[in-house]
């Protein structure tokens, strides 16, 4: 009986993440259009795109790694989703406690990279030169933003003396504060790293459609693209919820969750709409500059001041 509830809850969570993520994608397109003085597609446009892409036929085969690449990506997003407490407290989704263990924050750090690596392998198999360039750019950019991101999380772990997400949540709930106020430098570093994590402009050089013909995805059409779009939607939800959990005290109900994640999501989106595109080395220089410095400040603050 219990196992069925867990499985049902898991499916419900994945569905929730998918729907919310896809709607967020639609909102982003709408907001971008409004900023550019256009009408923009309807909010449910991304659903139509995904349904259409799933219903397309596929007649290409570049080898089995190509099939596995998008599968890796979606596996990574769903797995990371399983380890993240969507709501704090034990009100709505009690099954997450089973999957929580000490050090799951560190595990998540690895898990979140796994999807990109899978995509890189899949894109490498297709043999398209644009994919190869896009993958190398994407991975180098990842090296850029991972450093402030990890520094921010390390600062949190040092400060709260815990490496588990539930531990962090409990800390915030019992102390009645949010980590973004407790440890402001770490929060700033994490938000700056988040700009790169979402791959919106100015950090969209791995996918630059005008020069790289959409980079790693250039050989992937139909179902593969649909899988990648779904996994991207779930993954953006995962990242948002993770940051909300870690820095903003989690959310006690779904409405709070949507409000917080959406507010957080607007940072990279609005920053992206008004920005041009950085080259790879420029974005790496950007991430290794101020964000890293602020991350180090955060660590120092956590160790010495607190």
């Amino acid at each position: 009986m219990n196992i069925w509830i867990t499985i049902l809850g898991f499916l419900a969570t994945v569905f929730l993440a998918f729907v919310v993520g896809v709607f967020y994608g639609g909102f982003v397109r709408k907001i971008t259009a409004r900023v550019q003085n256009r009408v923009g597609p309807p909010v449910y446009q991304n659903f139509l795109d995904i349904v259409k892409l799933y219903s397309k036929k596929t007649a290409i085969n570049h080898g089995w790694m190509q099939h596995l690449g998008p599968a890796f990506a979606i596996t990574a997003s769903v797995t990371s989703l399983m380890f993240i407490p969507i709501l704090n407290g034990t009100g709505w989704f009690p099954w997450f406690e089973n999957l929580n263990f000490k050090g799951d924050l560190i595990f998540l750090l690895y898990m979140m990279v796994f999807g990109s690596l899978g995509m890189a392998l899949g894109a490498g198999q297709t043999g398209n030169p644009n994919s190869a360039i896009g993958v190398s750019r994407g991975l180098s950019q990842m090296v850029g933003y991972e450093i402030p991101w990890v520094l921010a999380l390390v600062a949190l772990m040092l400060q709260t003396k815990t490496t588990s997400l539930t531990g962090l949540l409990d800390y915030q709930v019992s102390n009645g504060t949010w980590m973004m106020f407790e440890s402001p430098f770490a929060f700033v570093a994490a938000v700056l790293a988040m700009l790169g994590m979402f791959h919106y402009a100015p950090f969209d050089v791995p996918f630059a459609p005008a020069e790289l013909s959409s980079g790693p995805a250039s050989e992937f059409g139909g179902k593969y693209l649909a899988l990648m779009m779904s996994s991207g939607s779930i993954f953006s939800f995962v990242k948002l919820v993770l940051i909300v959990d870690v820095f903003m005290g989690g959310a006690s109900n779904l409405i709070m969750l949507v409000v917080k994640t959406f507010a957080l999501y607007m940072i990279p989106v609005l920053y992206g709409i008004v920005s041009p595109r950085y080259r790879t080395e420029q974005s790496i220089r950007y991430f290794w500059g101020w964000p890293t410095f602020i991350g180090i400040l955060g660590v120092i603050y956590a160790v010495f001041v607190r």
Partner: peptide, 11 residues
């Protein structure tokens, strides 16, 4: 109308 540019023939 949901018309959107794509970069490669596969997509």
């Amino acid at each position: 109308f949901g018309i959107r540019g794509m970069a490669t023939p596969r997509q």
